[in-house]
């Protein structure tokens, strides 16, 4: 088996925590894991792309090649669109419908597409997937920083490879103490979004 996952978002959205949870899950099942992320200017609101590859066979390159991704997790709408080429024909996506404007869209140089346009483009380009309001949910729970954990909850629900309760155990294990309760709530909330 193999599971090639890509998480696309913006610096500060917590994609690293999400990859750590999923990696730990795979490692506990004795699978090979290899990943990489582009983190250059991530702390300054730049794009962040995390590649995560899980397989029972040897994995060579840490990069998921275009058209080979099994799962594309989009933490932010245009970062998701930017990486859509990675998704395999039979792959699926989970998109957090959330717009973080860029410096240029703020300026009015670029135009940030509307939610309707984004949804239409995504449905046109991809067959299988889920569009969810993870950040809205996280904000309802009190902290947008939990977007990543809400998304993990969705993944645990929709993907047979990731057993819901087992992923939860890892969220529990690696969450910093002061966020533990919030994170578990966010994880549960994710399940209810799909």
């Amino acid at each position: 088996m193999k599971k090639d996952i890509l998480i696309a978002g913006v610096g500060g959205q917590g994609s690293l925590f999400a990859t750590n949870v999923l990696c730990q899950y795979a490692l506990e099942r004795g699978l090979n894991v290899l990943g990489t992320e582009t983190i250059g200017a991530a702390q300054r609101g730049g794009s962040v792309v995390s590649h995560m590859r899980i397989s029972d066979q040897p994995i060579y390159s840490p990069l998921v090649p275009p058209g080979r991704g099994d799962v594309l997790l989009g933490m932010e709408s245009i970062e998701f669109l930017r990486n859509i080429k990675i998704l395999a024909r039979n792959g699926y996506y989970i998109l957090n419908l959330y717009s973080l404007p860029t410096v240029y869209t703020n300026l009015g140089i670029d135009r940030y597409p509307s939610e309707d346009e984004i949804v239409a483009a995504v449905k046109e380009a991809c067959e299988k997937g889920y569009i969810i309001p993870a950040t809205v949910k996280a904000a309802e729970l009190g902290n947008t920083q939990m977007t990543n954990v809400v998304m993990l909850g969705v993944l645990g629900k929709v993907d047979d490879f990731f057993e819901y309760s087992e992923v939860k155990k890892i969220v529990e294990k690696i969450s910093p103490k002061k966020f533990l309760k919030e994170n578990l709530m966010a994880y549960e909330a994710g399940r209810e979004l799909v």
Partner: peptide
Amino acid sequence: IEEFQPRKIDIEIPVRTRTQC
């Protein structure tokens, strides 16, 4: 095997530059 076929995406994607926090 499985030649890569890019997905068609009909939307302009704005670039994201960095700035100060």
